[in-house]
Design a protein around this nucleic acid. Structure first.
Length: 533
RNA sequence: GGGCCCGUAGCUCAGUCAGGCUAGAGCAUCGGACUUUUAAUCCGAGGGUCGCGGGUUCAAUUCCCGUCGGGCCCGCCA
């Protein structure tokens, strides 16, 4: 019955409240409530990776809005090994299969390692979205020994860990092998090593580099037997225990996760509780993003939809809208959805600024969503809203030479801009998106138009008139006259002209457009159409 | 073997923080207006057993159980 709005009325506010009441019940300190996300570093970051960040950060924001101190930890998995050479990268990387990504040179040559390069792509996207985070590199964390206590505890209780894994997912590997991957000191690979003994007195793990089969492919080991110092970053915990160590060591209270690692989280929760004696963070599970064909969007499949691709056609806020709009449910996703998210964001903005009226309850929700899309830094005044399709259409039709003048004039006449109002920075950005869109997806096709005899005669008439005319109205009238004198319906004839001139069945008012386009160009185009017969 | 998501108008989907008036939007379709015509715009119309069956409730598209159909994830690594 109670209609009290929590925070900004979104899912994130509710989650934040849940986190807090759980922490209170557990009697934990609320001085700093940390959330965490994993920062993949083994391949090109896809859209889904940003979803993880956006949602966790939204919870952090919600916590802050509730008056708590909170931060998002971005934990970079740069000690993970390279399992597969991603599509689009040179096959020469094959020799690094099994190497920690932080020890592989950057194939692009601009970062200190392969891992840095990949993770920086995602960090760049986070920055564009205004998502703030506390960056931690796994490599550094291990080298500094920040997880040392937890690693020790886990290795000393490896038997128990192995049992938990077996109970939860039926995998019995870890009843024999320690849940730790040393980096082979001879060949430099991780994952190929089998850790069989822990010596607590020296913090050393004894291993043999045997090789490991991943996705049907064997990454060969070198056979070396050695020992790794767990205090010096000479290896890492497997994921079926690393989360737990991180949560405790870094004091994490909330972590969202994709359903693909659901089992891993389940196991880690138990390890955290039963082995490390630390209550694991609150969780929220989200679904994967699928492409329109229903396939998981992943780097290895080659259908990479990266944040960078999104930013080519849409704003960071529109991407956050996609991420935050709905938490549950599988999302199918395609580049072609970007315009609708851009438009939807404009609608939210209208609601936020009271330009569009909706029900009170609805308004609260939509305003809240808008605020989160702007990571609480909402603009002071609304932007100029031009529907994406219209902009795309206009930039497609616009003569290259005078794009801005053409756009400004059209937008003024459509009343999107006031008289004398010019295109501002935000609108210019929208134009850029639309231009990219049109360039990439709507190339103007030069479809040959076959003309009837009457149409030919009319086109010829127009060419004649054009030679002399230089007033928009004069040209506009000439087209009508040409149609009428040749017994054509003006509507149909206009359509023909649009097809000839721009390959679309409709377009802007022709009189002014022909002048803007350059009379001679138009005459040439018309003559080409005539000669195509 | 274990788990999850989806199923609402011809199409794409909202409607799931939190059950509540005649279930909405966009597009598409049809009709009308403006008749020199521009992506049109404006007005209006039609169209839905909310997959199916049960249950909880004063009240279910919404919550619970079952079921059918479509799809995904995990079961090696992460």
């Amino acid at each position: 019955m109670s209609e009290k709005t929590i925070g900004h009325g979104t899912w994130y506010d509710k989650m934040a409240q849940k986190v807090i009441s759980r922490e209170r019940k557990l009697g934990q300190s609320l001085d700093l409530v940390k959330t965490e996300m994993g920062l993949g570093a083994s391949g090109f970051p896809h859209i889904g990776s940003l979803g993880d960040a956006a949602r966790s950060y939204a919870v952090t924001l919600a916590l802050k809005e509730m008056g708590f101190n909170s931060e998002l930890v971005a934990f970079c998995d740069d000690t993970d090994g390279l399992r597969k050479v991603p599509v689009g990268l040179p096959a020469s990387l094959k020799k690094y299969l099994g190497f920690p990504v932080s020890s592989i040179p950057d194939p692009f040559g601009c970062h200190e390692s392969y891992g840095k390069h990949m993770s920086s792509l995602l960090l760049d996207a986070l920055d564009k979205c205004g998502i703030q985070y506390h960056y931690l590199s796994a490599k550094e964390v291990y080298e500094k020994g920040l997880l040392l206590d937890q690693i020790r505890t886990i290795l000393l209780n490896a038997k128990k860990v192995g049992e938990i894994v077996k109970e939860e997912v039926g995998q019995d590997r870890y009843t024999e092998v320690l849940p730790f991957f040393p980096v082979c000191s001879k060949c430099g690979r991780i994952y190929t090593t089998k850790a069989y003994k822990f010596e607590p007195e020296t913090d050393k793990v004894l291993y043999k580099c045997e090789g490991l089969e991943i996705r049907g492919k064997l990454i060969a080991g070198c056979g070396h037997e050695g020992e790794a110092d767990i205090a010096k970053g000479e290896g890492k915990l497997t994921w079926k225990s690393e989360f737990a160590a991180r949560w405790k060591a870094l004091d994490i209270r909330f972590e969202a996760y994709g359903k693909d690692i659901a089992d891993s989280v389940k196991i880690n929760d138990r390890i955290c509780r039963e082995v490390l004696c630390f209550e694991p963070p609150s969780h929220a599970k989200y679904e994967m993003f699928l492409d329109k064909g229903g396939k998981k969007i992943s780097k290895s499949a080659g259908n990479v939809f990266t944040p960078q691709v999104w930013f080519r056609y849409g704003s960071p806020q529109s991407l956050l809208l996609l991420m935050l709009k709905r938490f549950v449910g599988t999302r199918t996703l395609d580049v072609s959805d970007i315009p609708s998210y851009m438009n939807e964001l404009d609608e939210l903005e209208d609601v936020y600024f009271g330009k569009k009226q909706v029900g009170a309850k609805e308004a609260v929700k939509l305003r809240g969503l808008y605020e989160y899309c702007w990571v609480m830094k909402t603009p002071a005044k609304p932007s100029i809203h031009v529907p994406y399709n219209l902009l795309a259409f206009l930039v497609k039709m616009a003569p290259q030479e005078c794009l801005n003048a053409f756009l400004t004039e059209k937008l003024q006449s459509y009343r999107y801009l006031q008289k004398n109002q010019q295109v501002d920075a935000d609108l210019a950005k929208r134009v850029e998106y639309a231009l990219n869109w049109v360039q990439d997806f709507e190339e103007i096709k030069e479809t040959p138009v076959s003309l009837t005899e009457a149409e030919e005669a009319a086109v010829t008439n127009i060419v004649t008139v054009l030679e002399a005319a230089d007033e928009p109205d004069e040209i506009q009238n000439a087209i009508f006259n040409a149609a009428k004198t040749n017994g054509l319906k003006p509507g149909a004839f206009f359509k023909t002209l649009y097809l000839i001139l721009m390959g679309a069945p409709q377009g802007p008012r022709l009189g002014p457009y022909i002048l803007a386009m350059g009379k001679q160009n138009v005459i040439a185009a018309l003559r080409r159409a005539l000669s195509k017969k």
